[in-house]
Nucleic acid binder design. Sequence first.
DNA 1: CGCGGGTTTGATGATGCTCAAGCCCGGTGG
DNA 2: CCACCGGGCTTGAGCATCATCAAACCCGCG
Lengths: 210, 210
Amino acid sequence: MAGIHTVPAILFPILAIMYEVLLDNINRKVTLSAEEQEVIKTCFVPKKIRKKQYVLQAGEACKHILFVEKGLLRTYYTDDNGGEHTVQFAPENWWISDMYSFLTNEPSLYNITALEDTEALMLSNGTFEEMVTKVPKMERYLRILMQNNLVALQRRITGALSDSTEEKYTRFTKTYPDIVNRVPQHIIATYIGLTPETLSRIRKQLLHKK
Amino acid sequence: MAGIHTVPAILFPILAIMYEVLLDNINRKVTLSAEEQEVIKTCFVPKKIRKKQYVLQAGEACKHILFVEKGLLRTYYTDDNGGEHTVQFAPENWWISDMYSFLTNEPSLYNITALEDTEALMLSNGTFEEMVTKVPKMERYLRILMQNNLVALQRRITGALSDSTEEKYTRFTKTYPDIVNRVPQHIIATYIGLTPETLSRIRKQLLHKK
DNA sequence: CGCGGGTTTGATGATGCTCAAGCCCGGTGG
DNA sequence: CCACCGGGCTTGAGCATCATCAAACCCGCG
């Protein structure tokens, strides 16, 4: 699959793999022809982000949608009292962006930053509409993507409204078992809406229960 | 626009108007040809729902997506302790459904019921895929619809996590000024995650502040 | 060894929930 | 026309839960 090409020998296979992950992900929802796959590739630019680097800072408009190929990104914002709240984690195979800012070009309220060194594919402002007109099937893919996100978010809301503090945490560990061990727990606290102290106490209780 | 037809004189104009509202709504996002509009019409069935009637009951699979033409519907669920939580209000021009159950055919956790006598257009399980294959543009419309919903839901989450009790209410009144006056406030309380008592006290405070 | 980020532990206080009663108002039936 | 009823809203008192503030601890790393 790799090798016989006019591209620098080292660079090519790496890129090929990156795009494969993305295309696999898309092909799971819709079926793309070979040409369509080529078009898609041209729309995305690979990008490496170092741990603690920012992809988006509150105040600027969000110019990109990112597909995470490896690593872990996080969207968060800080409220009027200086409290941080994480909106989303994006590990491998996830998309991340501030869609509102991306679409309207208004300054974003959110920050997107790397919790680990990560590699992502970047789809930018300008190329987005170009992509969906060239490959209309992407509308369907995106529709399904958004739809799934929507149901997940709805779950999160109902959880936030009705779960006990303990359930909030255990639900998180069940929903994102991989993430639990990859991020400091005071950040998880900002996701489920607790202080780090109470989260710590909850975990203690859970140990004693077993 | 109405009149010269073989359809019962009274029935026709009513139906025509109903579909107009729906088509207007869709045409605001994508442009449909006359034929496409006809196809869309055939996919939706008009339905009247009396106040307090159920469109969906927890336990059954959700077979429909509804577009509200007039009136007010509401999605809610009751948690393990018997507490009610409203997930969504759907006034005129809004869509409502349990997408998860609709897509997977699993029994729904939610109830959908009418807060007012309402008139809606119903798209059912079977016709959904038929519609999007016949009118692929609908994928784009739906994508945009889902996207906007997503953005709104994210707002709601961040609000739930960081807003003070008072802000939760004032934000609601600003976001849904029409709904505030149409539904009993103990139901609004279940939307923003407060008890009716505290909501009452909040409102009192707000009066004294003015 | 010492520093710093992250987690734990404790004491205290505010906030919102629970339970219980009273109130307001519109609707119904005598 | 009045009496009563019920749903919804309000008010109050007591209590549980979590946030806050502050200190100690743990551990990996320079």
